[in-house]
Structure formats: structure tokens, C-alpha cells
Design a binder for these strands. Structure first.
Lengths: 107, 107
DNA sequence: TAAATATATGAAACTTATTTCATATGAAAA
DNA sequence: TTTTCATATGAAATAAGTTTCATATATTTA
């Protein structure tokens, strides 16, 4: 007996996807996938303003997609590999088939 | 040698996530997960206005997440199980750990 | 302890997405 | 062949999300 109904509320999914549905946040995630960095470093690498980066990191952290570690006056952020890796793999698989079609219409 | 860099452009991911980052579209996907339905039927089940549903189905189809099949004057929509199933599984796994935290702050 | 550095945050300005409404198109039924 | 039913679509109205700016807080260094 397989249940086609979702186990979590729609709202939870919606928040999850919304968190990733933003180019700035995806940039941050990809930067952090290489290695942990503090806010200032992230700003440099991403070439983005500090307050913008902080706002987005906060959201990512709040949704469990990155972790924050205090170190003196610095805050080091790391990506939640456990979530992000399999997720991006699922999506890559989908993209392989539909990416062109998707990107064609937009911009 | 494992590449931590993504294979697809950020933009593609962003579009992918945006497509799912909407409660109405998630509703439609969940309805279609049970079985294919035409637009009128979807409207009834979801209790949503026809034009709203059509707008969203169009986007879902455009992004390869549902398929459309003509049948007389009806248009039957089916969910792309191949994409949606593993995707939602990844997310459920993440949710199991972070859902409470996430939902606590919002609403 | 005053100045400097790192990060966070609230709110306004701005941008993008969603919904609604009116109407168009296309197929089938009368 | 007109009417009805099913679906689609453009555009205005509305809502939600993002960025910026000014400033607050916290930690170190001088």
C-alpha cells in the first residue's frame, strides 16, 4: 500500500523550495560547497554586499541548509552536504532532460 | 577528482526551484500524483479558479514537471513521476531533521 | 576604554511573482 | 451553424520577495 500523499505539509515544501529559488542564495551555497568561509570572505568571493549576504545566510541557516560556527569575531558558514548533495543530484537528473526546454522560454 | 562545482547554470536551478516554490503549484502536483485529471477536474478537486489553474499548469508543463495529453476537448495532465518522486524523497529526508525549526519561525 | 573590524538587522525602495478578470480559442453538442 | 463546454491567455491589480541603506551589536586591537 503505497501512499501517494505527501508526509509533510505543502507549506514546508514551499518554504524549502523558496529557500533555493534565488540566484544569490544558490551562489552562496555553491561557494560554500568548496569550503567553509566567514561572511567577509564570502562577500569577496561572491562580490556581493555584506548586508545582502548576511540576510541570505540567515535564511539559509534558518532552513537548515547551512550551519554557522562562531570563531572569535568571525562567523564561519558551512553547507549542509547531507541535504544539498542528493538534492542537487536529483535535479541534475531532471535537468538533463528538460533544461533546454526550460531555459529556452525564460530570460 | 570530484568536482564540487555544479554542472548546470545557477539560472537553471533557480528556475527549477521557483517552479516548485509555490503552494498552488504544489497542490496541483499532489493532486496529479494520485491520477491524471483534466483541468476542470483539477479545479474541482483543488477548489481553485480555472484560469489560475491553467496559468500554473502551463508553467509546470513548461518546466517538464507535468505532461499534457489532448483528449477531445479535454486536456489531461499527468505528473512527471520520474522527476517528482526522487525529488520529494530527498526533501522528505531533509525535512525530517529541519522541518520543525523551519516552520517554527514562519507563517 | 576608544577605535576598528565583523556581522546582523529593520525598514524603505525596488523587483518579481501571483491572482483575478475579461475575453479569446477550439471542440463538441444541439 | 449557433450554443455550450473546456481550456488558454493578456493585462491589470495585488502580493511577496529582494536589495539597499543606515545603523546596531559584538568582538578584538590599540
Amino acid at each position: 500500500m503505497d501512499s501517494p500523499k505527501p508526509k509533510m505539509g505543502k507549506r514546508a515544501y514551499q518554504l524549502f523550495f523558496s529557500t533555493l529559488a534565488n540566484e544569490t542564495r544558490l551562489t552562496l551555497i555553491n561557494i560554500l560547497r568548496q569550503k567553509p568561509l566567514n561572511v567577509t570572505q564570502i562577500c569577496e568571493v561572491a562580490n556581493l554586499e555584506q548586508s545582502l549576504v548576511s540576510h541570505h545566510l540567515k535564511m539559509l541557516e534558518h532552513h537548515g541548509m547551512v550551519f554557522k560556527k562562531k570563531e572569535g569575531k568571525f562567523r564561519y558558514y558551512t553547507v549542509n552536504e547531507k541535504t544539498i548533495k542528493p538534492l542537487l543530484e536529483s535535479i541534475d537528473a531532471h535537468m538533463k532532460e528538460y533544461c533546454c526546454k526550460i531555459l529556452a522560454g525564460k530570460r
